[in-house]
């Protein structure tokens, strides 16, 4: 993947977040504090502001820089969580990752998110998307299957009762709403899968 392709990938992810910013904010208004769309928008604005320079970096440097930009610009819960995810990916993925390297790095990044959030899958958070996607990835799923898994996993947060995050303050009243962080994670993963597939890098 050359720097142009990397730039295109980053821009595609950012575009998805910008398009869905209001939807994410609306989800967060229902069971949180109504800023998730704004938070991620601010984060991806910071990331795209570093283009094209950012896309010229190696994968590890690029991911660490993107993660650090999220940490320093987003705030809230999603800043440290998304930031940690990308920074950890950068730390472990290597300069020319093959599928096995990506699977391993994704696994490490998910563990880092769990440690940062002191959380697990099943608590109505973005981990409810990351964990099943990691499993699909490890099982060799193709782009379409990963995308479908991500979207379905976010939907599955609807009936859950939140144990972590702001929605946990609601107790039973958190049931019946999709978790905003799960939704945004699924959108990012779906876009990455689409892009990699389009660029011929993932079947």
């Amino acid at each position: 993947m050359d720097s142009q392709a990397r730039e295109q990938l980053i821009r595609a992810v950012a575009a998805t977040i910008f398009q869905h910013s209001e939807e994410l904010t609306a989800l967060d208004q229902a069971i949180g504090d109504g800023d998730h769309g704004l938070n991620l928008k601010r984060g991806f604005e910071a990331v795209t502001a570093e283009l094209p320079g950012l896309a010229e970096k190696s994968w590890p440097d690029l991911l660490k820089a993107a993660g650090m930009a999220m940490v320093m610009k987003v705030g809230g819960a999603s800043g440290p969580l998304f930031g940690t995810f990308f920074m950890e990916l950068g730390k472990t993925v290597g300069a020319e990752p093959d599928r096995a390297a990506v699977v391993a790095a994704f696994g490490k990044a998910v563990e880092a998110v769990k440690a940062r959030g002191r959380s697990e899958a099943g608590q109505k958070t973005l981990l409810d998307v990351l964990v099943p996607v990691q499993a699909a990835l490890a099982a060799g799923a193709d782009a379409a299957a990963i995308k479908a898994e991500a979207i379905a996993a976010a939907d599955k947060t609807v009936p859950m009762q939140a144990i972590r995050g702001r929605a946990s303050f609601l107790g039973e009243r958190s049931v019946g709403h999709m978790d905003p962080g799960a939704r945004s994670s699924s959108l990012i993963i779906a876009t990455v899968a689409d892009e990699l597939n389009k660029q011929g890098l993932m079947p």
Partner: peptide
């Protein structure tokens, strides 16, 4: 001071 209703960032 963070953004409205959003935690400030570590920096």
């Amino acid at each position: 001071p963070g953004q409205v209703f959003t935690s400030p960032t570590p920096d």
